[in-house]
Computed example of a mutant assay.
Amino acid sequence: MSGMSNEEDEDATPRHAAPMVEEVTDFEVLEIALRELAIEKGLFTAEDHRRYTEYFEQLGPAPGARFVAKAWSDPDFKQLALEDAITACHEVGIDWLKPTGFGTPSDFTALHILEDTPTLHHVICCSLCSCYPRPLLGNSPEWYRTPNYRRRLVRWPRQVLAEFGLYLTEDVRIRVEDSNSKHRFMVLPVRPDGTQGWNEEQLTQIVTRDCLIGVALPKPGRTADVDRPVHAAVHPAQNY
Results as ranks from 00 to 15, higher is better:
residue 139 N to F: 04
residue 139 N to M: 14
residue 139 N to A: 12
residue 139 N to Y: 09
residue 139 N to K: 15
residue 139 N to C: 11
residue 140 S to A: 15
residue 140 S to K: 15
residue 140 S to N: 14
residue 140 S to I: 04
residue 141 P to M: 08
residue 141 P to D: 11
residue 141 P to L: 08
residue 141 P to Q: 12
residue 141 P to F: 06
residue 141 P to G: 07
residue 141 P to E: 12
residue 142 E to K: 14
residue 142 E to A: 13
residue 142 E to H: 12
residue 142 E to P: 03
residue 142 E to W: 10
residue 142 E to G: 14
residue 142 E to F: 07
residue 142 E to R: 14
residue 142 E to M: 11
residue 143 W to V: 04
residue 143 W to K: 08
residue 143 W to C: 00
residue 144 Y to R: 11
residue 144 Y to W: 10
residue 144 Y to H: 08
residue 144 Y to A: 04
residue 144 Y to M: 05
residue 144 Y to C: 06
residue 144 Y to Q: 08
residue 145 R to K: 14
residue 145 R to S: 14
residue 145 R to W: 01
residue 145 R to F: 00
residue 145 R to P: 00
residue 145 R to M: 12
residue 146 T to W: 10
residue 146 T to G: 09
residue 146 T to Y: 09
residue 146 T to K: 15
residue 146 T to N: 10
residue 147 P to Y: 06
residue 147 P to M: 05
residue 147 P to H: 09
residue 147 P to T: 02
residue 147 P to W: 07
residue 148 N to E: 11
residue 148 N to K: 12
residue 148 N to M: 07
residue 149 Y to H: 14
residue 149 Y to N: 09
residue 149 Y to T: 05
residue 149 Y to I: 05
residue 149 Y to L: 13
residue 149 Y to S: 08
residue 150 R to N: 13
residue 150 R to F: 03
residue 150 R to D: 05
residue 150 R to P: 05
residue 151 R to T: 01
residue 151 R to P: 00
residue 151 R to Q: 12
residue 151 R to L: 13
residue 151 R to H: 12
residue 151 R to N: 07
residue 152 R to S: 07
residue 152 R to N: 09
residue 152 R to P: 02
residue 152 R to Q: 08
residue 152 R to M: 03
residue 153 L to R: 10
residue 153 L to H: 06
residue 153 L to K: 10
residue 154 V to P: 01
residue 154 V to A: 01
residue 154 V to D: 01
residue 155 R to P: 01
residue 155 R to H: 10
residue 155 R to C: 03
residue 155 R to T: 04
residue 156 W to C: 10
residue 156 W to E: 15
residue 156 W to L: 13
residue 156 W to P: 01
residue 157 P to G: 06
residue 157 P to R: 10
residue 157 P to C: 05
residue 158 R to N: 00
residue 158 R to H: 00
residue 158 R to Y: 00
residue 158 R to D: 00
residue 158 R to T: 00
residue 158 R to C: 00
residue 158 R to A: 01
residue 158 R to E: 00
residue 158 R to M: 00
residue 159 Q to S: 13
residue 159 Q to G: 03
residue 159 Q to T: 13
residue 159 Q to M: 14
residue 159 Q to F: 03
residue 159 Q to Y: 12
residue 159 Q to W: 11
residue 159 Q to E: 15
residue 159 Q to R: 15
residue 160 V to F: 03
residue 160 V to Q: 09
residue 161 L to G: 10
residue 161 L to S: 12
residue 161 L to F: 07
residue 161 L to R: 14
residue 161 L to Y: 10
residue 162 A to G: 11
residue 162 A to N: 06
residue 162 A to D: 07
residue 162 A to M: 02
residue 162 A to E: 11
residue 162 A to W: 01
residue 163 E to N: 13
residue 163 E to R: 15
residue 163 E to V: 07
residue 163 E to M: 13
residue 163 E to Q: 15
residue 163 E to F: 08
residue 164 F to M: 13
residue 164 F to G: 07
residue 164 F to N: 12
residue 164 F to A: 07
residue 164 F to W: 15
residue 164 F to L: 06
residue 165 G to P: 08
residue 165 G to I: 03
residue 165 G to Y: 04
residue 165 G to T: 03
residue 165 G to N: 07
residue 165 G to F: 03
residue 166 L to N: 05
residue 166 L to T: 11
residue 166 L to F: 02
residue 166 L to I: 02
residue 166 L to H: 05
residue 166 L to V: 03
residue 167 Y to W: 03
residue 167 Y to R: 13
residue 167 Y to D: 11
residue 167 Y to I: 08
residue 167 Y to M: 06
residue 168 L to P: 09
residue 168 L to V: 03
residue 168 L to K: 07
residue 168 L to I: 02
residue 168 L to W: 05
residue 168 L to M: 04
residue 168 L to Y: 04
